[in-house]
Design a binder for these strands. Structure first.
Lengths: 209, 209
DNA sequence: TAGATTGTTAATCGATTAACAATC
DNA sequence: TAGATTGTTAATCGATTAACAATC
């Protein structure tokens, strides 16, 4: 049984993974904690602590073997095990997410899209078919889907979330700019990209002051 | 001079803003800290502490006036003051960001897009013209742009970041799935959405275990 | 007034950082 | 061996939570 990691540590791990991949792909055999720390602007002791927390270890004087460390992170973060998901909303954001190539590497496999626009039904985006939302519940059951991504403009997002929950979905990744509410056993991540901008913009102000 | 907020507090403020807006638009005059806490799954004392940190106060027994509190957050987070930005990349993600309507409310105004594809140059997306990247530096100066959003597939992102820095940009919001590196006086937010998925997916695993 | 909620001080908890020992 | 880097224990720091006072 994995011991539970702290939130901050968990959030740093995918960032380590990215850096380690970059080094590995560049053909570098080892990476040192100070290098990871510099790239991500965290403390180097922090990096080693986090690595210790996932039971990996490096070699004193040499560093961490990029290939091994990468594999360890993939195993720990369960990246190789593709998780099937449905995507609600074939608007511009939905299409962008459907076409996004970075997800496979991180264990996300978007299987199909759903929309209400009759002009879109039947089209294929990046080899994923667009179905009418009325087929959603049935297909969730058929294909044993646990994750749904919501990418519609807002007002309808809560309704779609409720539909998803009633269809047996276990986790919702919400890109609509509202805070959706679902029963507490359902996992929700409200991806508020505008809020992320606000944080960036506050940092700019700080730099000026 | 604003006293500096902690990172966690700063990250919660836009979430409070969203909830307060929702209540205000629903016509509710007051909101209580316990309600905000419930909606965002944080501690209610935390909410009051955060509110105190931005020098706002409510009324005992009644709560926080939604209209006033909303205005206070807008002022504190500087949401009313539109920040001009350029967007590099008119691919599907770039278009989705250009069309995204939620940004205005959060103080972001995307002025124009840049790309290299000759078929796209001159087109308009949500009233924003697409220019050739060769015009970037000149237009940054002309329009005194401080922020650039990078939405291209990856390999080229570092080059574009460097171009942006050389053009005098002060902050970069990077959607490309690489960790871009720039001089330390430049503010960078690497928006790694795949990483956000990993965190969601780990939470699902925890729920099972 | 009584009760409910805000506001604040004190206590706890956990994450980060510092110091240093272990190791190749 | 000397030096560099990992790994770990201890100290610090800051965020969260708990307790309770203030207030309408």
């Amino acid at each position: 049984m994995k011991k539970k990691l702290s939130g901050p540590t968990l959030r740093r791990l995918p960032r380590y993974y990215r850096i380690v991949c970059e080094h590995f792909e560049r053909g570098e055999e080892y990476i040192r904690s100070v290098e990871i720390a510099r790239r991500l602007d965290v403390d180097e002791t922090q990096v080693r602590k986090d690595i210790a927390a996932i039971n990996y270890s490096g070699k004193p004087k040499i560093g961490f073997n990029t290939k091994e460390f990468k594999a360890h992170l993939e195993s720990f973060l369960d990246l190789s095990n593709a998780k099937k998901a449905f995507l609600i909303g074939a608007g511009s954001l939905g299409l962008a997410l459907a076409k996004y190539t970075g997800f496979n590497k991180y264990g996300l496999d978007i299987i199909a899209l759903f929309d209400v626009d009759p002009h879109k039904i039947g089209l294929k985006i990046a080899e994923k078919e667009i179905f009418h939302i009325s087929e959603f519940t049935e297909k969730v059951c058929e294909q044993d889907i646990k994750i749904v991504i919501i990418a519609i403009p807002g007002e309808e997002a809560q309704k779609m979330a409720t539909l998803a929950v009633n269809s047996g979905i276990k986790a919702i990744w919400n890109f609509a700019p509202i805070n959706i509410e679902v029963p507490k056993e359902i996992i929700v991540a409200n991806q508020d990209i505008a809020a992320d901008f606000v944080i960036l913009s506050m940092k700019i102000d700080e730099n000026k002051g």
